[in-house]
């Protein structure tokens, strides 16, 4: 049994998950070399306190928006 759009869904999830992992790892292992000043903030602090949260928000929104379109296309195909 193959389901319409399941493999496309898996691909989308994988991409977003890898993106998410990269963001989390960047926030966890913030190293001194990117501790430059960013609009009056220390960048590594700003990224952990705000940047990565905004990235999380974008990932979830992207997943909701893209899979809506995938599903609409998938039902049209079937």
């Amino acid at each position: 049994m193959r389901f319409v759009g399941w493999s496309r869904n898996l691909f989308l999830i994988t991409v977003l998950f890898v993106l998410w992992l990269a963001v989390v790892m960047a926030a966890v292992f913030s190293s001194p070399w990117w501790d430059f000043v960013f609009f009056g903030w220390s960048f590594s602090y700003w990224f952990s306190a705000q940047g990565c949260l905004i990235a999380f928000g974008l990932i979830v929104w992207a997943y909701a928006a893209i899979s809506d379109r995938l599903e609409a296309a998938g039902t049209a195909d079937a």
Binding site: V23, V60, Y63
Partner: peptide, 8 residues
């Protein structure tokens, strides 16, 4: 970050 896992 957990909410990303929840949604995905």
């Amino acid at each position: 970050g957990g909410f990303c896992l929840l949604a995905l």
